[in-house]
């Protein structure tokens, strides 16, 4: 089973990389960009018997730093064999 995990900085935590990307977009002439927040995307492939609790623990113990980051877990629908 494929699990997608999105790790993002908590609201209110300054994101210097997002600011730099925003600045670069402005420099390329794209107007109308209000804000840019950068984050991390992690895809993990786990056995079907891995519990939701374990996946949550993986996020809390390693994949996200709970001091500064939030995470969101998305389960991918099983792919249908062709």
């Amino acid at each position: 089973m494929k699990i997608r995990i999105f790790v993002t900085l908590k609201n209110g935590v300054l994101d210097p990389q997002g600011k730099a990307i925003h600045h670069a977009l402005d420099g390329l002439g794209f107007s109308g960009v209000n804000d840019v927040r950068s984050g991390r995307f992690i895809e993990i492939d786990v056995e079907d018997n891995v519990s939701d609790g374990d996946i949550d623990a993986m996020c809390r113990k390693l994949l996200a730093n709970m001091v500064i980051e939030n995470y969101r877990i998305e389960k991918m629908p099983e792919s249908v064999p062709a």
């Binding site: 935590v13 300054l14 210097p16 990389q17 600011k19 730099a20 730093n65 001091v67 500064i68």
Partner: peptide
């Protein structure tokens, strides 16, 4: 040491990049 929770807080990217 912060990642190991021996000290509080976190060290982020420098604000000036």
């Amino acid at each position: 040491l912060t990642e190991a929770l021996l000290l509080p807080g976190a060290l982020m990217r420098n604000s000036g990049i």
